[in-house]
């Protein structure tokens, strides 16, 4: 593995991080992806879309 590969590699050999709440359990990675999707959804609704330049 080259230096660049080592710098960019994500360590997958360690113990996975889980978040538990009563009977519910979810991996931190899955929770972050779900949070990202929720944020994207909210931004897609509230952010204004760029106006189209008027055609000649």
């Amino acid at each position: 593995m080259g230096r660049a590969d080592r710098l960019m590699a994500v360590g997958l050999d360690g113990k996975a991080h889980f978040i538990s709440w009563g009977p519910f359990q979810i991996s931190l990675a899955n929770l972050l992806v779900i949070a990202l999707i929720v944020v994207l959804f909210v931004l897609a609704i509230v952010l204004p879309f760029p106006k189209q330049r008027s055609r000649p």
Binding site: F41, A44, I45, L47, F49, Q52
Partner: peptide, 8 residues
């Protein structure tokens, strides 16, 4: 259609 939600 000029809304981000229609882009996905």
């Amino acid at each position: 259609v000029a809304s981000w939600i229609y882009v996905f």
